[in-house]
Each structure stands twice: as structure tokens, then as C-alpha cells.
């Protein structure tokens, strides 16, 4: 099967276009249910999260809510944002700068019982680093506060 000379470049161009379209279709299919949306406790209170869907939960750790469980590696705490709160459970080693009354981003899924089960707590590696979405939350909060005044 010999491709005629005049057509070879055309065939290659078409193949390249198909590759591009293929990449876009593949990406769209992959993104459908695997993009983790960033939500705050207010979003979850408003019922925007489906149980079982991958999520990033961002908010502040409530004062006095951190409860270490008997096995020594599971911790439960509450994340709040305005009046809304979400209970979170995490099994693992907490990042160093995880503190009460400070920002946190948890990756995981909302269970059917309303408890957010985190696979990962995003760490602030140093004072200058902040998980991308946290900057957002504090910016929004600052705006809200300005509006409130």
C-alpha cells in the first residue's frame, strides 16, 4: 500500500489534526469525573458536593476541634468557613504547620455520613508557601470583611 506522493503531506497533516483532536477528547473524557473541585464548608452546606466525588476542601481549622484518636495516627477536626462547618477525618502524619485557627486544604471525599475523609492534608512547607487555593480563600475573606465594614 503506497501512499501517493502528493497525498503524503496531506495525510500527515490530517493525522496530526486527529492527534490533536484525540488529545482534547481524551482529556475531556478524563476530566469528566476526575477533576477535584475546590469547595469550602459553605459550598458543602449548600449541598454542592456529591458524596464520593473527589474534592478539595479548604477552610480554617476550628479552635479546640482537633481530636486525636486512640490509634495515634487518626485525627478528627472541624473545618469552618463563616457559619458553615464540616467534620474531617484524616489518617496519617499531619504536616508540620497544621494548626488550630489556621488555614488548611484537605484532599479527599465526602462520606455519606457527612464526614469528609481526607487522603491528604496539603502542607505549608515554609512560611512563604501557601497551597494555591488558600490564597484565594483568604483573598475572598478579605473582600468579605471589607464589604462587611
Amino acid at each position: 500500500m503506497r501512499v501517493r506522493s502528493k497525498h503524503q503531506r496531506l495525510v500527515l497533516v490530517l493525522l496530526a489534526m486527529m492527534a490533536l483532536i484525540g488529545a482534547v477528547l481524551l482529556a475531556m473524557w478524563g476530566l469528566q469525573d476526575r477533576a477535584a473541585y475546590f469547595m469550602t464548608p459553605q459550598d458543602i452546606a449548600a449541598g454542592r458536593a456529591q458524596p464520593g466525588q473527589p474534592l478539595r476542601l479548604g477552610g480554617m481549622v476550628q479552635q479546640g476541634s482537633v481530636d486525636k484518636q486512640a490509634d495515634g495516627v487518626t485525627v478528627a477536626f472541624t473545618v469552618y468557613d463563616g457559619p458553615a462547618t464540616v467534620p474531617v477525618r484524616f489518617r496519617g502524619i499531619l504536616p508540620d504547620l497544621f494548626k488550630e485557627n489556621s488555614g488548611v486544604v484537605a484532599e479527599g471525599r465526602l462520606g455519606p455520613d457527612g464526614v469528609f475523609v481526607a487522603d491528604n492534608i496539603l502542607a505549608k512547607h515554609d512560611e512563604r508557601y501557601m497551597p494555591p487555593q488558600m490564597g484565594n480563600v483568604s483573598a475572598e475573606r478579605a473582600t468579605e470583611q471589607t464589604l462587611a465594614q
Binding site: L26, A27, W29, G30, L31, R34, A35, A36, Y37, F38, P54, R56, E107, Q133, N136
Partner: peptide, 18 residues
């Protein structure tokens, strides 16, 4: 997405699958 006003994160589940 962030530029359009909503936050989404794409991680290992997407990349590994695709």
C-alpha cells in the same frame, strides 16, 4: 478555570487514567 472564577484541581486520578 481559576481565571474564569471557579477552582478545580487536576491530580493523579486524571493524569494516570489518561
Amino acid at each position: 478555570a481559576e481565571a474564569m472564577g471557579y477552582a478545580v484541581s487536576i491530580g493523579a486520578p486524571y493524569f494516570n487514567l489518561v
